[in-house]
């Protein structure tokens, strides 16, 4: 494992810690999209089915379990915690799941490496992860008042993807057999979705202000 990959994973992990910390300390999930959290949970469930039939390393297994457990944990807080659930922006978070889930499922059935149940589900998770942030970005645009932790959460999620691209470039040059075009294409799309957010995030940060969206 190279440093880019490790830094990417840690950035991903850190974003989840931030979101749990925000919910736990402020007992609020204001500004967070439950749709995005549900989509991420679906991503983890469909991708990490391989926990049952393949083993890579202790590191991978532990990280997969953390991602699964934390995504269910966040959803539990948003849905069932007495105080937290009252802070959810239900009226603003109107993005429909099927708009993303259906096209990703169809695409996974057409463009995949092998037409088997596990492989199609895995491919579906790759496509869905690429676009799962969209409900969150839409909510961000609507509510505009972004608190620091939510801004940082999205920043570290974006950083995770950017670091994975560096990891792919590194592995492309160091591992002759390392070619995964499908993952790269989805990853580029995913990182691209953050471009606009990054622009405003860095601008606000430079000006020493809270994140402001136009």
């Amino acid at each position: 494992m190279n440093l880019f990959r490790l830094a990417g994973d840690m950035s991903h992990l850190f974003s989840i810690v931030l979101i749990l910390l925000k919910i736990y300390t402020s007992k609020s999930c204001a500004g967070l999209s439950m749709k995005t959290q549900e989509l991420y949970t679906l991503v983890f469930v469909t991708r990490y089915l391989d926990l049952f039939y393949s083993y890579v390393s202790l590191y991978n297994t532990v990280m997969k379990l953390i991602f699964l457990a934390s995504s269910f944990g966040i959803l539990w807080y948003m849905r069932y915690h007495k105080q937290v659930k009252q802070t959810y922006d239900r009226e603003q978070d109107t993005f429909r799941h099927y708009i993303l889930v259906v096209p990703c499922a169809v695409l996974a059935l057409i463009v995949n490496n092998e037409l088997s149940v596990t492989e199609v589900l895995w491919t579906f998770s790759i496509y869905l992860e690429a676009v799962a942030i969209l409900p969150q970005l839409v909510l961000l645009q609507r509510t505009k008042n972004v608190d620091n932790l939510t801004g940082q959460y999205i920043f570290f999620l974006g950083a995770y993807r950017a670091l994975y691209i560096l990891n792919w470039i590194y592995r492309y040059w160091t591992e002759p057999k390392y070619r995964q075009y499908l993952v790269w294409a989805a990853g580029l799309v995913q990182t691209g979705l953050y471009a606009d957010f990054f622009y405003y995030y860095l601008k606000s940060w430079q000006a020493g202000e809270k994140l402001r969206l136009p």
Binding site: R5, D9, H12, D50, S54, V56, S57, N60, M63, K64, F67, N113, E114, E119, W122, Y164, N167, Y178, R179, Q180, Y181, L182, V183
Partner: peptide, 10 residues
């Protein structure tokens, strides 16, 4: 890995 799928990333 079949068809270039890399199973060692998260």
């Amino acid at each position: 890995a079949k068809g270039g799928r890399t199973k060692d990333e998260l």
